[in-house]
């Protein structure tokens, strides 16, 4: 074949060398071009701190703790309860609002680095960032609705109460009357139908259950969204309890898996801010710290501000059904 080819060998070799070098140079040069090619808004936080957001129903009225408990409170005997979801901290970042009757969710007494053993509810104080109604012994908990395995969202990731064992989880052995690890827990699980990740809402911020479906990347709980109430019983979200877990869809790889305070900057990159509210910011909020219920000024919560004043955001809580005269059906 080569005898028909009238390009001389050395010339051909030089050409190939030149072509190879040019391609290599282009590749290296292309890498350095990355910061010009990537949109400027990328990797820049949408806001500096987590937003303080008031939870509203689809009609624009603030929701109250008693409405949530009436509407969606799940107990050990519940077969089905409405799913409540709102976007937080950014748009398209669904968060579950779950109310559990007859239980006080308490702070885990192990540190995040020492495994994920369950902490049974006891006499401890309610967990930081939940709303606990002592009159009815009910806990209201908000956890991220973005699965920590591969980012599936509601309705694929969904809370199934104690009396409802989803078909997909039966395939991996869960039974209503099972024994040990086969038993569907009393208060059920947040179960992901994409690949079978399981999270136990009773465990609060340390909710990863049975080690999840895949290897290490799934060994993370659903991040807990911090909740507080005001004097009118309205509900506010004011941050993420990053001591347990952080929203992993926004972490940059590699080197992105940081926990703690630094996580805010990473979390809030890429996306759209939730809408601002025209309501006035409450002067004080009631929240559970690790020890007890306390009244705090919103300015002490380290939420997003502009020129020294707190910006109040709003986010809509939607449900899959209308019940008890509450018209909350909608899309998040």
């Amino acid at each position: 074949m080569n005898k028909d080819n009238n390009i001389k060998e050395p010339e051909k070799r030089a050409f190939l060398k030149g072509a190879g070098l040019s391609i290599a140079a282009l590749l290296v040069g292309g890498l350095s071009m990355e910061r010009y090619a990537v949109p400027k808004g990328r990797s820049v936080p949408v806001m500096d701190n987590f937003p303080l957001a008031i939870l509203e129903d689809p009609n624009g009225n603030p929701i109250t703790t008693s409405e949530v408990i009436e509407f969606a409170g799940a107990s050990k005997t519940t077969k089905s309860s409405p799913i409540l979801v709102f976007n937080y901290p950014l748009q398209d970042e669904p968060t579950f609002l779950i109310a559990l009757r007859g239980i006080k969710i308490t702070t885990p007494n192990t540190s995040p680095s020492s495994g994920f053993a369950p902490v049974p509810p006891g006499t401890d104080a309610p967990m930081d960032g939940i709303i606990y109604d002592s009159a009815t012994n009910t806990s209201i908990l908000a956890v991220s609705g973005i699965c920590q395995h591969l980012g599936c969202v509601p309705p694929f990731l969904d809370y199934h109460p104690g009396q409802s064992v989803p078909f997909e989880s039966q395939l991996i052995g869960y039974k209503l009357d099972g024994v040990g690890v086969q038993k569907w827990p009393d208060y059920g699980l947040i179960y992901c139908k994409c690949h079978g990740s399981q999270y136990n809402p009773v465990w609060g911020g340390r909710n990863l259950y049975n080690n999840g479906p895949a290897a290490s990347p799934a060994n993370h709980s659903l991040p807990q969204i911090m909740l507080a109430t005001d004097s009118n019983d309205h509900i506010y979200a004011y941050g993420i309890n990053s001591s347990n877990a952080v929203i992993r869809t926004h972490l940059k790889f590699p080197d992105g898996e940081t926990h703690g305070a630094g996580v805010k900057n990473e979390d809030l990159t890429g996306g759209t801010a939730i809408r601002q509210s025209t309501r006035t910011t409450p002067t004080s909020l009631n929240k559970y710290s690790v020890t007890s219920l306390e009244s705090v000024s919103p300015s002490s919560l380290d939420v997003n501000q502009s020129n020294g004043s707190i910006i109040l955001y709003k986010t809509t809580v939607v449900s899959n059904e209308n019940k008890d005269g509450l018209n909350w059906k909608g899309t998040f």
Binding site: L31, E34, R35, A37, V38, P39, G41, R42, S43, Q91, K252, F253, P254, D255, G270, G271, T272
Partner: peptide, 16 residues
């Protein structure tokens, strides 16, 4: 990391 960031930016822009 820069390359992954670039590929992601090609697919979703700044993710809005």
């Amino acid at each position: 990391g820069a390359l992954i960031n670039w590929i992601e930016a090609i697919i979703v822009g700044n993710y809005t």
